[in-house]
Design a protein around this nucleic acid. Structure first.
Lengths: 138, 138
DNA sequence: CGAAACGATACGCACCTGCTTATCATTTGT
DNA sequence: ACAAATGATAAGCAGGTGCGTATCGTTTCG
């Protein structure tokens, strides 16, 4: 992977390398990548509806249902009807879900830090900032 | 996409945003993302065999065949038996393939530069360097 | 009130993916 | 020289993805 490749190729390469390195962590905790994505999204705050959650994480709304079924069966998330709109189901982390997410996230951070070894603190800051900028430039 | 998300999520977000922005360019030139990836790989030098090419771009070797079929039919790449090992086929860009790749790459660079607007020259350099570092940390 | 919109859910489709198996020509190692 | 390994190719399979359709309960609005 060369430094003067297309930016898209570089992002894909870095993302793939990270995903590969993180897969063992997820497997050890019995989570798929998408399940972890859901937990991460909910850790930032409960989702007002499954539809909103699907849009947040860019996952197909009809497939999200079975994904949530599994997480609910595992006791990591809870679906509760929104009292203000009983069509919608509010999705939130259970206590156990919060614990599990925090544990996995901590290990993932360790893996990331390992991959970032060799980069200055300033370079890491710029990297995160630039990636967030790219991701938000719609 | 928040700056303190997981690095993997940030890479995925940035990559997705770039891919979305670049898709119109590829469509206008009648190329798929994978076809462009092949042209890019070959622009750096002919592939000694299809197997090596598949590994370089991390694409399934059995699917690469139909991908190359299309590119060959479009006159963008050429497959020639390796004189040193007649089992292998050397894959290289045709003149037209080189032209097409250069044209598409130029447009993609423009799109990327647009997305990078707001980032200093130094930040862009650090970004590329850090992504390449991540992608190569196996 | 009654029609239209909306959220959750189920189901099926078309496509893409990595993987496996099998065949054939060619090369390599003993 | 002959068996094993290798590269290209074809074909098929299981899993994943986005998308469209249909149903059902609930909400909104004229």
């Amino acid at each position: 992977m060369n430094e003067d490749d297309d930016l898209g190729a570089l992002c894909a390469g870095a993302g793939r390398a990270l995903a590969e390195a993180e897969r063992p962590v997820l497997e050890r905790h019995g989570l798929t990548m998408w399940q972890y994505v859901v937990l991460s999204a909910l850790a930032a705050g409960a989702a007002p509806s499954q539809l909103v959650l699907a849009q947040q994480i860019r996952y197909d709304k009809t497939r999200l249902i079975t994904l949530l079924d599994a997480l609910e069966a595992a006791g990591l998330v809870a679906r509760e009807p929104d009292p203000a709109d009983r069509r919608a189901r509010v999705v939130r982390l259970t206590t156990e879900g919060g614990r599990r997410h925090a544990a996995v996230r901590a290990e993932i951070r360790e893996v990331e830090d390992g991959k970032l070894a060799g980069l200055s603190v300033e370079a890491r800051r710029v990297l995160r900032s630039a990636l967030a900028h790219l991701a938000n430039t719609e």
